[in-house]
């Protein structure tokens, strides 16, 4: 499922349109061209641009004062804190997993490799609601470990650990899926040379592999972070919606919205939209850098 979220190396190459538009054989008549362009851009404006702009317009509808009040509200701040905590735990866990999985899959041959990759993809194709449900079934009051946890007074569901678990699940494949194709394409000659010359495993990874995969790694990290901070469905199932305790920012948006505090809901939402825009900005920058690095390596090779 990650096909659509992987790093695009050709993205920054901007010779495309001159290549196609310069020749009669590869261009449309002006009428057809403007029809396609007009339709595509209208579709883009209605379905992507307007929802984005609407968030900020609605957020500022009642003025800056309401906007700022909504953001510094104690419940909003505690939701922000929980969102940051969940992301700060989920990110390193999935980072370590992603690097390990990519190392095992890309650098070695073993049976069942394709099956393993499919299993790693699973969380992408599972509905977020089900992602929440599975932890309720394991750790909830009626779940496998429910009675034992209750006996020892440990709360996972309707508490912070459940939120962290659900966040880990929904962001599980991002980094692994980014690194596997990248490390497979790079082969293992360089690492083998390093080992033969006496480097140990960690040195090899740190000095040889990491410089080659840094852009893909960073890309996976920002995608994981964006999804971790924005997850709604899975977290909603396990959170219990206790204000000031188990609310993340997206859940806080829902509560405000359902209480008809629209301006406040959109104010908090605008914070998340800003995060999305920053993510897209960094993503574009990474694609640019990665493409430049790729072109350099091609030039060196030729």
């Amino acid at each position: 499922m990650a096909g659509a979220t992987t790093l695009r190396l050709g993205a920054a190459a901007d010779f495309g349109q001159t290549r196609f538009e310069a020749r009669a054989a590869t261009r449309e008549t002006p009428l057809v061209k403007w029809l396609i362009l007009g339709t595509a851009l209208t579709f883009f404006a209605v379905f992507l641009l307007m929802p984005l702009i609407a968030v900020f317009v609605e957020a500022l509808r009642k003025g800056w004062e309401t906007y700022v009040t909504a953001l510094v509200d104690p419940d909003a701040l505690s939701a922000l804190r929980l969102t940051l905590i969940a992301a700060a735990i989920a990110l390193p866990l999935n980072l370590v997993f992603g690097v390990c999985a990519a190392w095992a899959i890309a650098k070695f041959e073993f049976r069942g490799k394709h099956f393993l990759i499919t299993l790693i993809d699973l969380p992408f194709s599972v509905s977020p609601v089900i992602a929440g449900l599975i932890y309720v079934l394991v750790f909830g009051a009626q779940g496998w470990f429910g009675p034992w946890l209750a006996e020892h007074d440990i709360r996972i569901i309707f508490a912070v650990p459940g939120i962290v678990l659900a966040t880990v699940f929904v962001t599980f494949p991002f980094i692994a899926r980014e690194l596997i194709p990248l490390m497979q394409a790079q082969g293992k000659e360089e690492e083998e040379a390093a080992v033969v010359l006496g480097a140990n495993g960690l040195q090899t990874f740190w000095h040889v592999t990491l410089p080659n995969i840094k852009w893909g790694l960073l890309y996976g990290v920002i995608l994981t972070n964006a999804r971790a901070m924005g997850e709604f469905g899975a977290v909603s199932v396990v959170s219990g919606h206790i204000r000031g305790q188990t609310n993340t920012l997206p859940l806080h948006v829902e509560i405000l919205y359902n209480e008809y505090q629209f301006a406040a809901a959109f104010a908090v939402a605008s914070l998340l939209a800003l995060l999305a825009l920053v993510t897209l900005g960094i993503k574009t920058w990474i694609e640019h850098r990665a493409a430049a690095a790729y072109r350099d390596s091609q030039d060196d090779a030729s």
């Binding site: 984005l52 995608l223 924005g230 997850e231 709604f232 997206p250 998340l272 897209l280 574009t284």
Partner: peptide, 14 residues
């Protein structure tokens, strides 16, 4: 081109 990915990055509740 960059904004096409917005639905990936924008939280669904927003």
């Amino acid at each position: 081109d960059a904004l096409v990915d917005l639905p990936f990055a924008l939280p669904t509740a927003v």
